[in-house]
Structure formats: C-alpha cells, structure tokens
C-alpha cells in the first residue's frame, strides 16, 4: 500500500539541543498512528515539524505528492504556497487554541471563508455540518468560553476538518481536559478513525493507543526507538526505555 505521508530525516535543534534526530515517519492512507513517549522525547516537535508549524533543520515531509515547502517544479515555495500546503494537514492543539472572539460556527467557518475563499453562506453551511457531525449542533452560536473543555476540543477538531485535510495531526488532544471530559474527545477521534481518516496522534492515553491505533511508535531522545501494532508493543516491549515508560504509566498492578 502506498504511503500517504512520508517524513524522512526530520531533524530539529533548539540551540545546542537536538530534539529530533533524523526521524522517519511513514503513514499509510486510513491508518491511525499513535506516538507515545516521555515528555521531552520530541513527540510534539515531530508533529509540529510535519505541518511546518516548526521549521525542521533537515528532512522533508511529503504528503499526497506534495513536498512541503517545495513547489511542484522543485523550487522553494513562498509563504502563501506553504500556507496552502499546510491545509493538507489538520492540526489539533493540546490547549484547543480556539479563536475566543468568534462563535463555534465562526471558528470553524473562518478557514473555508478566508483561506479557501468560499462564500460566507457556504462556509457557515460547511461549518454547521462539521459541528453537527461532532455532536455540537446545539452550540453553534456559543463562544469558546461558554463551552466545556471537551466541547471546545471538538470544535477545534471540526475547525480542522472543515479544511478537508488529508491527514489529521493531534497533539495531546486530551491532556488539558478534566478527566470526565476526556472520553467524549477520544470517542470523536475514534469515530473519525473509523470513517477512514488518516491520523497521527500524540497522546498519553494508553487505552486509546491500545484500542484505536493501527500502529504505535515509541519515541525517546528525539528518535523512534520502537514501533509495532499496539498488542505487540504493549505486551512485549523490547527497548528498556519503553519498558520503563510503560511501568511508570501503570504502576503496580
């Protein structure tokens, strides 16, 4: 099967510290890949390098025949072009990052309206459809501050989906949520995966990794040190760092 996403040799340094050390990441269409690892292992930075929220020092990302930062004739893409290429990815932030001055509907409609240039009516129609799909039909005209954390994160997912991305990237989407609100977001993500969305998810939710992932990657010190189907990875971890990581997560059972 062809890879939809191919990141190769992604390297990122912050000052003297190498956060990502030549990471390769291949993702097939409709696949859900979960990345786990201790904080500081480079998971989030990897995700941000994929859609160029962060500019990697080396390496390339190829998604659906587009190499990010490069035009089809091989020349360097300008800012406008790179911005357009970025829409191939949807990105969901740990802290939602909704636009606080806009209603849920406007949050979701803004991209289609101002980036894709569709009419206001069409943008709002699309936004309402995405929000309804995520169970937020009753909250279209509320501001983010009037919504619970779980609802806000679902609005953020809808905002990303409204741009019709090929791959969805989730950066610890439930880490900022109260425990009782985690499940509704995970359910939404699981539904998305079931509908065939290609997803890369950085998370500490091991149950989600176990049950929703096709493949789990474990990162440590800026590299992917172990990967495999969740059953293998969780039941028979080989790398010592992964064994330690899993032990810390599930203390004394």
């Amino acid at each position: 099967m062809v890879n939809l996403l191919e990141a190769r040799g992604i390297t990122k340094r912050f000052g003297a510290r190498t956060v990502l050390d030549g990471v390769d990441l291949l993702v097939r269409e409709r696949e859900t890949v979960v990345i786990i690892g201790a904080s500081g292992s480079g998971k989030t930075t990897l995700l941000r390098c994929l859609n160029r929220l962060e500019t990697p020092d080396a390496g390339s990302t190829r998604i659906a025949d587009v190499t990010l930062g490069q035009r089809s004739d091989g020349r360097t893409a300008d800012e406008r072009e790179l911005a357009r290429q970025r829409t191939l990815f949807g990105f969901v932030f740990q802290r939602f990052n909704l636009f606080p001055h806009l209603t849920a509907l406007r949050n979701v409609a803004l991209g289609p309206r101002r980036v894709l240039g569709v009419t206001p009516r069409e943008a709002e129609r699309r936004a309402a459809a995405e929000l309804t799909r995520l169970g937020l039909a009753d909250h279209l005209h509320k501001r983010p501050s009037q919504l619970s954390g779980g609802q806000q994160q679902r609005v953020a997912i809808a905002r990303a989906l409204a741009m019709d991305p090929r791959v969805m990237l989730f950066d610890e989407p439930t880490s900022a949520l109260d425990p009782e609100l985690v499940q509704e977001v995970l359910d939404a993500m699981r539904q998305l995966a079931a509908e065939g969305m290609t997803m890369v998810v950085v998370t500490h939710e091991m149950r989600f990794a176990r049950h929703a992932a096709d493949r789990v990657l474990f990162m440590a010190d800026g590299r992917i040190v172990e990967e495999g189907p969740p059953t293998d990875l969780f039941s028979a971890p080989r790398d010592a760092r992964l064994q330690r990581f899993l032990r810390h997560l599930e203390p004394t059972s």
Binding site: L53, R80, R86, T87, F93, L98, F99
Partner: peptide, 12 residues
C-alpha cells in the same frame, strides 16, 4: 497559540 491555530488552517 492563536497565530499557530491560524497557520494550522492555512492562513498566511
């Protein structure tokens, strides 16, 4: 985070 969110939906 606001400008990053804007970038993430393809804004310049």
């Amino acid at each position: 985070g606001q400008s990053e969110a804007a970038m993430s939906i393809g804004m310049t």
